[in-house]
């Protein structure tokens, strides 16, 4: 709390930074649409010509966003900045439903334009979207280092292998005590916390750690709220759980992160380790866009151009939220993909 005044006094400069970065983004955007024209001849021009004039001031409409609570901070950042920089006549109702929840509840029914997901879309979900007559277009917006955490008073575990994690979390395992995993660890039962069974984080963890999608032991505490996972872990010396790195990053000291050994030695979770691929539990997080809406709605096109540029913003994505920003090359690829879909 005592740092607050400092934070607030820093605010105007942060705003200035954002404005200037958005100017950069706008220039980049202009350059990019120029590229599109060069590459794909007149097609793009005719479609945008049909849509009328493209002046940022005239943009309005509603873009419905649903999905993962892991992606939610990025969604909020993108929409908030878009409204500040481009047009505040565009309204964004956002709900946090979990990746699966968002797909089921809104996106696959055609009720939302964008769905955030902390796991890649399933084949079955793509098919249901096609039944509805649209294609879900995938864009990666950030990376995360899923963090395995223990209590601060846990003085035995420092580094853990994926195989050991799997033994902790598998349903058929007979393991109840820490000593079942490594004999030198204490004879105390685990107390396990993790993402709710409706979230993409859960899907990722079961697939990567347990080895089979949505299979997990019965007696863990599943919740949609990462804060509650952290509270659970910090309340019991023998607790263990997994949560997004962003949460750990924003609440240093409350819990202890374990190093992960994916077969090539122990690696501490960090944004660098996640982006260079040395951290084994690094995962991409995505948004999926309804292709029909993308072609119909000019405000959605503008928003996504802005959004994709913003995913490279070190200040917002890394420092404020705690995710791995996208590289320039990835952004360029995403922009190209976007322009292709719009045509």
């Amino acid at each position: 709390m005592s740092q607050d005044p400092h934070d607030r006094s820093g605010l105007p400069s942060r705003r200035n930074f954002l404005v200037s970065s958005s100017v950069v983004a706008a220039t980049a955007l202009a350059g990019c649409s120029g590229n599109g024209d060069d590459g794909d001849a007149g097609d793009g021009d005719t479609t945008s010509g049909d849509g009328g004039t493209t002046s940022a001031d005239e943009l309005s409409g509603t873009i419905r966003i649903s999905g993962s609570s892991t992606v939610y901070p990025v969604q909020v950042a993108a929409t908030e900045e878009f409204r500040a920089d481009v047009s505040d006549d565009v309204e964004f109702p956002i709900s946090r439903d979990g990746s699966t929840g968002g797909f089921e509840k809104f996106f696959l029914k055609g009720d939302s334009d964008i769905n955030g997901s902390s796991r890649p879309i399933l084949e079955e979900e793509v098919e249901r979207a096609r039944d509805q007559g649209f294609e879900p277009i995938e864009f990666q917006v950030a990376g995360d280092a899923l963090t395995a955490a223990v209590n601060n008073d846990n003085d035995w575990a420092e580094c853990i292998t994926i195989e050991e994690l799997s033994r902790i979390w598998s349903p058929d395992a007979e393991n109840e005590l820490w000593s079942d995993i490594r004999s030198e660890w204490p004879d105390e039962p685990f107390d396990l916390y993790g993402a709710a069974t409706t979230s993409g984080t859960f899907d990722y963890w079961t697939r990567e750690v347990v080895g089979e999608l949505r299979v997990i032991r019965d007696d863990f505490e599943g919740t949609e709220e990462d804060d509650l996972i952290a509270r659970g872990i910090s309340d019991n010396q023998y607790a263990h759980g997994y949560l997004p790195y962003a949460y750990y990053d924003n609440n240093p000291g409350s819990i202890k992160a374990l190093e992960i050994d994916g077969g090539e030695g122990c690696t501490e979770p960090s944004l660098t380790a996640a982006s260079d691929g040395t951290y084994p539990l690094a995962r991409p997080i995505f948004i999926y866009v309804n292709s029909n809406r993308l072609q119909e709605k000019e405000e959605l096109q503008e928003f996504l151009r802005y959004y994709i540029e913003l995913t490279g913003n070190q200040q917002i994505i890394a420092e404020e939220i705690g995710y791995v920003p996208m590289s320039d090359q990835e952004i360029q690829d995403n922009l190209n993909k976007l322009e292709e879909t719009i045509e």
Partner: peptide, 25 residues
């Protein structure tokens, strides 16, 4: 210990699969 009530289970399912055609819904 933690528990789950009937109502909480409904909220859990609702925030997961409000429109799906799954048994959970």
């Amino acid at each position: 210990q933690s528990i789950e009530t009937i109502t909480a289970a409904m909220i859990n399912v609702a925030s997961a699969d409000i429109g799906g055609n799954t048994p959970a819904y």
